[in-house]
């Protein structure tokens, strides 16, 4: 596939010419990493590819791997494409075993000041300067090595100050014993916090349990509009499972914005406006 001249942001994937590749979207981040290597970020990303080339996919513990390279995960949501179908929410809830009221990715349909109706999927912004991390009295909310904001539900005392502090309403509380549980007993971890714990907070983990190992977030996989991209700021690539883009160019070419930039939380989630909507509410 050659890159169309009007899409300077597109990255040519080494193995991306098969139209049936959507069948193997879970491989996309691997491809992403490979593309990254092709793009000069090479040595940084090479180990990921190697690891998954060699490791046994049936081994869920990923034991015996060489340490994964550091990442600066980011997400981009193309609002021009989002039709508000909420498939992302459903997939996230089903695969994280969440009750319906916990919408870790929540699609707000809002009318902006110019009267345009716009669908905005809101997940945790994984703020680089996260207010929720700062206010947590017991360091239950923490930043992982790759800049993701996670919650250790074994530590959370349930004070909910993080819910007050989050400017994006991204946090949810387990007011009751979780009604939905994984079919098999699993040990919940901050990276895959299912089942949720009563009396503690939960929120989007950017599917770190997937992306770390070369797979895509559940919301992205479920998005039929290809509106959600996940990527790495360091490797400067992102993918929506169908196409892979050079992240910095993609963001600047499309005038990507972050929500509530004025609060200086430095979100890791960008939005691409496109209907001319005024998102400064």
């Amino acid at each position: 596939m050659t890159v169309p001249p009007d899409r300077v942001d597109l990255v040519e994937l080494p193995q991306a010419e098969d139209p049936a590749r959507r069948m193997s979207r879970r491989q996309a981040l691997l491809a992403l990493a490979a593309a990254g290597s092709a793009l000069a970020a090479g040595p940084l990303l090479a180990p990921l590819v190697q690891v998954h080339g060699e490791s046994d996919p049936a081994d869920p513990t990923h034991a015996g791997e060489t340490p994964l390279p550091p990442r600066r995960w980011a997400m981009v949501i193309d609002l021009r494409r989002c039709d508000g179908c909420k498939k992302c929410t459903e997939a996230c809830q089903a695969k994280h075993y969440l009750p319906p009221e916990q919408e870790w990715i929540k699609v707000y349909t809002v009318r902006d000041r110019t009267g345009v109706e716009v669908n905005i999927p809101r997940l945790c912004m994984h703020c680089e300067d996260a207010p929720c991390v700062r206010v947590c009295p017991v360091t239950a909310t923490f930043v992982d090595r790759d800049g993701l904001v996670l919650v250790d539900q074994d530590k959370c005392i349930g004070c909910r100050l993080c819910m007050a502090a989050c400017p994006y309403e991204a946090r949810y509380f387990n007011w009751t014993e979780p009604k939905v549980k994984p079919p098999l007993p699993t040990k919940a971890t901050p990276e895959y916090p299912s089942p949720q714990q009563r009396g503690t907070v939960g929120k989007c983990v950017l599917c770190v349990h997937n992306i770390k190992y070369g797979e895509l977030p559940y919301c992205l996989e479920a998005c039929t509009m290809d509106a959600i991209y996940v990527g790495d700021l360091d490797a400067d690539v992102a993918t929506n499972g169908t196409e892979t883009v050079r992240l910095s160019t993609f963001l600047s070419e499309n005038n990507a914005i972050r929500l509530k930039e004025e609060l200086n939380t430095k979100p890791r989630v960008w939005y691409i406006p496109g209907h001319g909507e005024d998102l400064g509410w």
């Binding site: 005392i157 349930g158 004070c159």
Partner: peptide
């Protein structure tokens, strides 16, 4: 609190930046 039995964590692993 949602988890009052963990209040001791305030003593053993406090985060000085937190108003709580």
């Amino acid at each position: 609190l949602g988890r009052p039995e963990r209040i001791w964590l305030l003593i053993v692993s406090p985060q000085a930046a937190s108003p709580i």
